[in-house]
């Protein structure tokens, strides 16, 4: 049987998805990227191969994506994560018209057309506001574990307004809010609102089309998802492992390239 691998080398994690010829996922792995992305891609691939119970020789094509896509020597081709997220989301949720991907370093909104093809997209500018990095900085400042901050924010009774756009300014705002004894949950709620507003501008500039799927690590944050759904007025599709959508799309592209 033919197998296809997609490798997504991101700034935080390196993810691999393996598909069989029928297009079914038969193995995946998520590891930290660390300092050497070539090594990370090798390791992640080995893990996924082991999970699928196959060897490297069974792979027909490998596609790399993500920031580290250039440092994956084993890849036959590379594609940007924009094409990969669009295709991955389309594969999982075929009525997806819009993909919102909030990753560690950047966020993207993608308009998906027929067959999972990218019709239009936008990405945040250089600034970190509106990315996972923003939440990471704030989580550290508030001494809240990153994976708990979303749920905590949902327990807020009220909400404080974070007025600055800039991560650095917002950080100093948070410091003074803490100093004035504002409840942590309310500050968190405000922070989540701030990131959603930033991403919302991007959503509007691309336009909401059909169903919405969220990908990327921040999709695991319930606080962001709830506020985004509020803005959209509709529910968002989220896969249980939203980080691997890029790798999945890459594997699908590998399979498509062979077919």
């Amino acid at each position: 049987m033919d197998y296809f691998a997609g490798i997504d080398v991101g700034s935080l994690s390196t993810d691999v998805v393996i598909l069989n010829g029928g297009g079914e996922v038969c193995g995946y792995s998520i590891i930290e990227t660390g300092a050497n992305s070539t090594e990370a891609s090798e390791d992640a691939l080995e893990n996924a191969l082991a999970q699928a119970g196959i060897g490297r020789g069974d792979l027909v094509k490998i596609v790399a994506t993500g920031y580290g896509r250039v440092s994956v020597p084993l890849a036959d081709r590379k594609f940007t994560e924009i094409s990969c997220h669009a295709l991955g989301a389309y594969y999982l949720f075929p009525y997806t018209g819009t993909v919102i991907d909030i990753g560690g370093q950047d966020s993207k909104v993608i308009r998906v057309g027929e067959g999972g093809k990218v019709v239009d997209f936008t990405m945040n500018d250089k600034c970190a506001a509106g990315t996972g990095r923003f939440l990471e900085v704030m989580a550290a400042k508030l001494r809240v574990p990153l994976d708990e901050m979303g749920d905590l924010s949902l327990h807020a009774k009220g909400e404080v307004q974070i007025s600055s756009v800039c991560t650095v300014f917002a950080e100093s705002e948070v410091v003074s809010l803490v100093a004035r004894n504002h409840p942590r949950e309310e500050i968190l709620r405000g922070l989540h609102r701030a990131i959603v507003s930033r991403v919302w501008s991007m959503v509007k500039s691309i336009g909401v089309n059909g169903e919405v799927t969220m990908t990327g690590g921040v999709a695991k944050n319930s606080g962001v998802v709830v506020l985004m759904e509020e803005r959209l007025g509709k529910t968002i599709h989220i896969h249980s492992e939203p980080q691997i959508i890029g790798a999945l799309g890459a594997a699908l592209l590998a399979r498509r390239a062979f077919g």
Partner: peptide, 9 residues
């Protein structure tokens, strides 16, 4: 645009 204003600074 108060988003470009830093109270502390």
């Amino acid at each position: 645009d108060s988003r470009a204003y830093s109270e502390e600074q």
